[in-house]
C-alpha cells in the first residue's frame, strides 16, 4: 500500500526483517552454527509485535534460536498471542517513565519467571529497552541478548577469515 502512495507500482525490491534474513542464511547453509558453541543455558524469546504479529515471522525466528541454543523454552502465551514488551509505540524513548513502564508489565515478569530461562532473546531494539525496564523494576535474574549477538557467538568462522597472530 505504502509503495503505491509513494509512486511505485510495485516495489522493485523485497523488504526483510532480520529474523527472516538470518533464517534464510541458515537454511541455505551460507551461515553454519558450531555445535560446540551452542548456548547451554535455558533461553526464552520476546516476540516483537511488528516481526510476529504483522510480518508473521514467528516460526523463522524460532528456527534461528533453536539452531543456536540447546535449551529453548517458549513463554506462555507465545507467538502472535504474546504480550507486548511495553516499550513499543514510541514508549522506548520515554526514559523518565521507565518505572511506570516496568510496573505496568508485571505479566511479562511472570511469563519470564515461569519459563525459568536465564537469557531473554530480544530481536528488536524497542523490546530490548522494554525487557530491560522489566528486569530492572522486578529484579529478575535474567539477562537480555540480541539475535545478532547470538549468531556471532555461535557461528562457524572459517579458517581463512581468522586474522593472523602477531
Amino acid at each position: 500500500m505504502a509503495a503505491q502512495l509513494l509512486g511505485f507500482k510495485n516495489l522493485p525490491f523485497e523488504v526483510l526483517q532480520p529474523a527472516e534474513f538470518y533464517y534464510e542464511l541458515l537454511v541455505t547453509g551460507r551461515l553454519k552454527i558450531d555445535p560446540a558453541k551452542r548456548i547451554k543455558e535455558p533461553v526464552t524469546v520476546q516476540d516483537p509485535c511488528n516481526v510476529i504479529r504483522r510480518a508473521g515471522a514467528a516460526e523463522k525466528l524460532r528456527y534461528v534460536i533453536k539452531a543456536a541454543c540447546e535449551d529453548f523454552r517458549d513463554m506462555y502465551p507465545n507467538r502472535e498471542h504474546n504480550f507486548c514488551c511495553n516499550s513499543g509505540g514510541g514508549l522506548a524513548a520515554l526514559s523518565n517513565w521507565s518505572a511506570h513502564k516496568g510496573r505496568g508489565n508485571r505479566v511479562k515478569a511472570e511469563q519470564i519467571l515461569r519459563t525459568g530461562a536465564k537469557i531473554v532473546i530480544t530481536p528488536c531494539h524497542n523490546c530490548h529497552t522494554g525487557i530491560k525496564d522489566v528486569i530492572n523494576y522486578w529484579k529478575l535474574p535474567v539477562k537480555t541478548m540480541y539475535l545478532d549477538q547470538l549468531l556471532v557467538s555461535t557461528m562457524v568462522i572459517p579458517e581463512e577469515l581468522k586474522p593472523e597472530e602477531g
Partner: peptide, 30 residues
C-alpha cells in the same frame, strides 16, 4: 506520533536509496 508528512519523507527516502543503488533486498536492523 502520527506526523504523516515526515512519516512519508522517511519511507520515501529509504525506498529511494534502495532504488538508487539498485539492490535486490532491503534488510532492516533488529
Amino acid at each position: 506520533i502520527n506526523d504523516y508528512f515526515t512519516m512519508e519523507r522517511i519511507v520515501r527516502g529509504l525506498y529511494e536509496n534502495a532504488k538508487r543503488l539498485r539492490v535486490k533486498r532491503i534488510v532492516l536492523t533488529e
